[in-house]
Design a protein around this nucleic acid. Structure first.
Length: 110
DNA sequence: CGGCTGACTCTGG
DNA sequence: TCCAGAGCCAGCC
């Protein structure tokens, strides 16, 4: 991986792409997986994604296990539908069970 | 080079 | 449990 040619955003996109179906991850967790990255950077990187991108941005939620509302792009309810169709269960509070669906990271694959 | 933008997290009340 | 404020940094004009 040429991290020198890849921007921080690109690293984030690659990391998000590693999230398996039926699992979710948080901005903060992705940030810890990516070197020199902060939770905001992850959010900003997602915000820069075009609609219908190859990146499973839908599997990224905030630390509360809830879907963050965005100004542009796909609506939050669409993101919720995507996760539900993947097997992720949402509580009536609008939050998902992170202790059950959160992606522990690539180390789990090693 | 300077200013604007933005899908967050943490802490305290 | 919910709400407000502060900290934070890469991209793109």
């Amino acid at each position: 991986m040429n991290s020198k040619t890849d921007s921080v955003y690109q690293k984030i996109y690659v990391m998000v792409s590693q999230i398996p179906k039926g699992k979710v991850s948080t901005y903060g967790r992705i940030a810890k997986l990516v070197d020199n990255c902060t939770p905001r950077m992850v959010g900003y990187a997602m915000a820069a994604l075009p609609v219908g991108s190859d990146i499973p941005w839908q599997r990224v939620v905030n630390s509360q296990g809830k879907i963050s509302v965005r100004a542009h792009g796909d609506p939050d309810e669409l993101q919720r539908q995507f996760l539900i169709s993947e097997g992720v269960v949402f509580r009536q509070t609008g939050k998902t069970d992170l202790s059950r669906f959160v992606w522990q990271g690539p180390k789990n694959l090693l």
